[in-house]
């Protein structure tokens, strides 16, 4: 711990003058042209092709480059925690709140959402189709000891899965529960090959569906299913007070751009295999103030 603090101090001391130089001219231009924004994000935003589709607008507008590093949510937050990214886009509110609470992130905004779906073999041996809720669906899988593929990689999807198991009061374990430690795409491939169930974000599932032998057995809120399967994405800047080297100006420019009507419309218009994958959340006539309240505190606020 002490060593970390020491290194951070040394790094900040050396980096601060460099950051000062990099800030650029003040004579009218935004001062960020030619710079590179490092975005730590999840595999779902990259693998679905969303970021490749919308980023050219931002890059042209500011004359900058965006380096999107696809990792699981846990790894993306760790990258940001080390000051190796300028902005983070992930989907696990609990982990995001912890990140903010520890001072590593600032200015979080709700960005967009899609939902999780429970997918599995068409013959549905555990009877998930008839489950009234997400927790009931997982409980049915546990009762039937039907094969279930877990990401097991500290990703946003994995975090959601663990929350659901806890809510279902089930303690997954044994032969049927298979932790793969892989990304969503690989987990879906493994589920296909093993006739197993898994929890997937809709985006990755839809973009891979033609190559999978799995069907949606329990829809998320987009398909009329339970709200517990909502999958909201947030975007936040790395705190320049903790990591003096981060490009905070550009990070805020990015957050401003992606939460503005144009980019939000581009997100809404992005389709794979004819299906919309992400639903914009940032622009509304009636903004949701609860987005600024940590997840666990909302009930206290009423």
């Amino acid at each position: 711990m002490q060593r970390r603090t020491f290194m951070a101090t040394v790094a900040a001391g050396v980096a601060a003058p460099a950051a000062g130089c990099a800030r650029g001219g003040t004579d009218g231009d935004p001062g960020v042209a030619g710079e590179t924004l490092t975005l730590a994000t999840t595999t779902s935003t990259v693998d679905t092709g969303l970021l490749d589709a919308i980023h050219p607008d931002f890059e042209d507008l500011y004359g900058v480059t965006v380096d999107a590093v696809p990792q699981g949510t846990g790894a993306a937050l760790e990258t940001a925690r080390n000051g190796d990214a300028d902005v983070v886009m992930v989907h696990a509110r609990g982990l995001e709140d912890e990140f903010l609470r520890n001072g590593y992130g600032v200015n979080r905004r709700d960005l967009m959402s899609n939902d999780f779906v429970v997918v599995g073999p068409g013959d549905d041996p555990a009877g998930v189709r008839d489950a009234p809720s997400a927790t009931a669906a997982l409980a049915a899988i546990a009762d039937a000891r039907a094969p279930f593929v877990s990401r097991g990689d500290d990703s946003g999807t994995h975090a959601k899965e663990l929350t659901l198991w806890a809510a279902a009061d089930a303690d997954p374990g044994g032969d049927w529960y298979r932790e793969t430690g892989t990304g969503m795409g690989e987990a879906l491939n493994i589920a296909t090959q093993q006739d197993a169930y898994t929890l997937s974000d809709r985006g990755t599932f839809v973009s891979q569906r033609p190559r999978l032998d799995l069907v949606v057995l329990l829809e998320g809120p987009i398909g009329g299913g339970p709200a517990a399967l909502a999958n909201p994405y947030g975007v936040m800047a790395v705190n320049p007070g903790v990591h003096g080297n981060v490009n905070y100006d550009l990070a805020m420019a990015y957050i401003g751009w992606i939460t503005a009507p144009d980019a939000q419309a581009a997100i809404a218009g992005y389709e794979v295999n004819g299906e919309q994958l992400f639903f914009p959340e940032a622009v509304s006539e009636d903004p949701d103030l609860r987005q600024y309240v940590p997840e666990g505190r909302r009930d206290e606020e009423g």
């Binding site: 290194m7 040394v10 790094a11 980096a15 080390n82 000051g83 990591h243 080297n245």
Partner: peptide
């Protein structure tokens, strides 16, 4: 090479 590491100021990560 990470920002936290000895070569952090060189910004070599990624």
């Amino acid at each position: 090479v990470s920002n936290q590491g000895p070569l952090g100021p060189l910004e070599l990560v990624f």
